[in-house]
Design a protein around this nucleic acid. Sequence first.
DNA 1: GCCTCCGATGGCACACTGTGTCAACGGCGT
DNA 2: ACGCCGTTGACACAGTGTGCCATCGGAGGC
Lengths: 194, 194
Amino acid sequence: MVSEELRETALQLLAARGYDETTVDDIVAAAGMSRRTFHRYYASKEDVVIQLLADLGAEMRAELGGRPESEPPAESLRRAVTVAINFCAGHHDAAKTLAVVRLILRTPVLHARSLERQAGWQADLAAVLAARLNLPVDALYPEVAARLAFVALNTALERWALTDGEADPLELTDRAFEMLAPALAGQGLGEVGG
Amino acid sequence: MVSEELRETALQLLAARGYDETTVDDIVAAAGMSRRTFHRYYASKEDVVIQLLADLGAEMRAELGGRPESEPPAESLRRAVTVAINFCAGHHDAAKTLAVVRLILRTPVLHARSLERQAGWQADLAAVLAARLNLPVDALYPEVAARLAFVALNTALERWALTDGEADPLELTDRAFEMLAPALAGQGLGEVGG
DNA sequence: GCCTCCGATGGCACACTGTGTCAACGGCGT
DNA sequence: ACGCCGTTGACACAGTGTGCCATCGGAGGC
């Protein structure tokens, strides 16, 4: 597949030379293709990296939506985050994913983009929660709870990347969720939940 | 001041026509200057908007650092976030700031950039907390707690912008912090605090 | 008063990104 | 063999951001 070879070449060069120091022309030259072809598969240089996480949001949303309604939101959210962690750290080749995560975290443009992606996913999760629990429209709980899930996710992922994959991301996630549990259990100070 | 006139013209055009639909050439033409001069004051089109929040991080950091060490972290963080809220909603002309916040939230590039800025501030606050409480090096509390502050801030700001400034951002912040209080009080499940 | 120095500005050229348009190539079935 | 169609590459263009240099104008020294 052309897009895969392009992505492979890109990731290798970006990780080796650094993001800003690598031009799209460098990438397509190394892959033996034209810049026009590159942009047929990837909207921008950022996209080659960010698109790797494309399905992550949908998977988290699906996991959250698939959890039983009777389950406490804290547990449903923890499962959704676990899906993300497994996607990153357990999927196929953890070392490769680690390299990508580190590239994103150390490259401001990529970090910015990935955070914005997360903001979209967070809104999705909040919508699922809001539909499940029927709270007053002005309740902050769904939005805050969804954000807390990403607090746990990002804390775990950053620590994982910072320790070169030494720390166990699932254990980190669980520790973070233990800490957040009381806030997630509150459901906005006595408002009625599902 | 040249930079101020440039910024004023830019904000007006960006808010009116939209970010992507406005070129730097449009801005400098409206301000009667050259593109070269624009880039002497602002590194990029994003910068004209994002630079408005430049001092926010430092102010939050200063407020947090200035709180008494004996104060519970939850309260210190709430004060730091209050500084940010007042900066946005109470500073001078709330309507103008509201327009900027809305512009940022509805423009992906700007939203991404502002989130990345926040990530930096969050790390700063976490460092302050880590220095204050002496926890084990692998403790997640400082990092998580600092993130929670921004969860509250963003939830309040987005709700504020979404309601066209109707909702009181300070009240929203307090409600969010009430919800997060139990997690912030925990200090990582029995680890010793300052 | 004139000259020099210096900061601010503008013009130009350049590298890079991203998009639209079109021509060329190559497999495929008829 | 022919035409069809999807893939590719070539070119041109708009937009961004930077380096370099010429220019202008004011402040201060002579």
